[in-house]
């Protein structure tokens, strides 16, 4: 891969080196400048596992909306399983990392297209947004808490579902997303995308 190096003498290139990836805390390779989002996932305690790597490689934005890994993703579950099996060999102690059964790996994290197709009602979204703007500033300031205004609706929906399912760890956002219905998430996405 031209973006990443792996193996003996691997260095950071466009992306960080991928040695000893399993069990490594996200966003922690010395000397590499990560996106804010990936750094946050690491600060929140996210450690790379089969499950979240699989999701990240499938759709990098599901895990990190502003990720600098500009990469469409690997759609095929079997291809991802092969890739992860390959990466696993470059761990300090591969034998200690359980080899995921291929059948278990072949799950898709991709959101059901029906969920992405829901047309959100921005007026309802505006009402619901009252709960969000106590923390996320309406003017888009992102000090301490990320900005969620003016996002493409799809990224917004994907991000909230990632919290809802626990793929992205964050106690506040997981709790709030858990009680939002698919329609409510679509409504919020429709509202926030219109705010400059």
């Amino acid at each position: 891969k031209s973006c990443h190096q792996i193996g003996k003498d691997a260095e950071n290139r466009i992306g960080p080196h991928l040695n000893s990836l399993f069990g490594r805390r996200a966003g922690t390779v010395e000397g590499y400048r990560y996106s804010k989002g990936l750094q946050r996932r690491g600060n929140d305690g996210m450690v790379w596992t089969f499950e979240n790597l699989d999701a990240y490689i499938e759709n990098p934005k599901a895990l990190v909306s502003d990720t600098r890994m500009n990469f469409a993703g690997v759609g095929d579950a079997t291809d991802r399983a092969d890739l992860l099996a390959y990466l696993r060999q470059f761990s300090a102690n591969p034998q200690n990392i359980p080899e995921a059964p291929r059948t278990a790996m072949a799950t898709d994290h991709e959101l059901d297209p029906a969920i992405l197709a829901i047309q959100g009602d921005p007026a309802y979204g505006e009402y619901l947004s009252g709960e969000c703007v106590t923390c996320h500033q309406r003017d888009g300031d992102d000090a301490g808490i990320p900005s969620i205004t003016n996002w493409p609706a799809e990224d917004f929906v994907v991000a909230l579902h990632a919290y809802k399912t626990g793929l992205r760890p964050h106690p506040v956002m997981e709790m709030l997303a858990r009680r939002l219905s698919n329609e409510e998430i679509a409504a919020l996405a429709a509202y926030f995308k219109t705010i400059e």
């Binding site: 600060n43 106590t134 996320h136 000090a143 808490i145 709790m175």
Partner: peptide, 30 residues
């Protein structure tokens, strides 16, 4: 539903949590 920070969390998480509170202060006052 509820959550609470845990004892023994590392410095990076505690710092992120503190920074969230700064963001929240600006959010709620505006």
């Amino acid at each position: 539903d509820s959550f609470v920070s845990q004892t023994g969390e590392d410095a990076a998480l505690r710092k992120t949590t503190f920074e969230e509170s700064l963001g929240w202060y600006d959010g709620i006052t505006s």
